[in-house]
Design a protein around this nucleic acid. Sequence first.
DNA 1: AAGTGTGACAACCGCGACGCG
DNA 2: ACGCGTCGCGGTTGTCACACT
Length: 214
Amino acid sequence: MQGENLRKGTWLQEEDEQLTSFVTRLGERRWDSLAKVAGLRRSGKSCRLRWLNYLRPNLKHGPYSVEEERLIIQLQQQWGNKWSKIARRLPGRTDNEIKNYWRTHLQKRVQVQQEGEFMNKVESVAHDFNKKNIDVVSNSEGETKESSVDSFPLSDWGMGNSPYENRIFDWIVELQNGYSDKEKELGRDRKSTHEYNPQQEYDTWDYSGILWDL
DNA sequence: AAGTGTGACAACCGCGACGCG
DNA sequence: ACGCGTCGCGGTTGTCACACT
């Protein structure tokens, strides 16, 4: 099928009817051939997507129930962005629809919730650090103290349950050592410059990158 | 009323997996 | 074993409607 003859964009009602008619007769396979036979100026891929996401019988198009939302959130946390796998647990919903719903409705809600829980833990860690009199930012000589965070397992702080919690803890260690692994890779050593001020970095650090990069 | 921003959803794209000759 | 066509998946982009200024 020649690329320049293929239509793109929103499907017309006639195209939907044509596609439905031929899929019903020929079955859900050989989409390229089916598109040709049906006289549709669409790629097989496009036909397949249109059928699976919109025309297929028994699809739900209405609003999501609380139970469906709960299931999506739970399965997304369990399996990650395995939308087709998640869709199999929600009859009548498609992977594409669930993916879109997650991005537009649920992702922000979950992030705000996790951010709140996470910041509570960070505050708790900061509090405990103060109590144990550990100075994570003043070691501008780059020496690793024995009484560092290494002496205290993540579990002691109620952290280490997820990648981002591990990451914030790694970051604390990086701060203690004076610079990050990334900067080591780049061959930079800020401690060798007079301008470097770990306390200033600590004060101006933008937490948002860590919080959103889950 | 017109322009702009934003959210929701539909559709496309790239890539890897799979089946078959 | 290899090449090719097809399929399936996840990420991204396009489009439209509505709200806001």
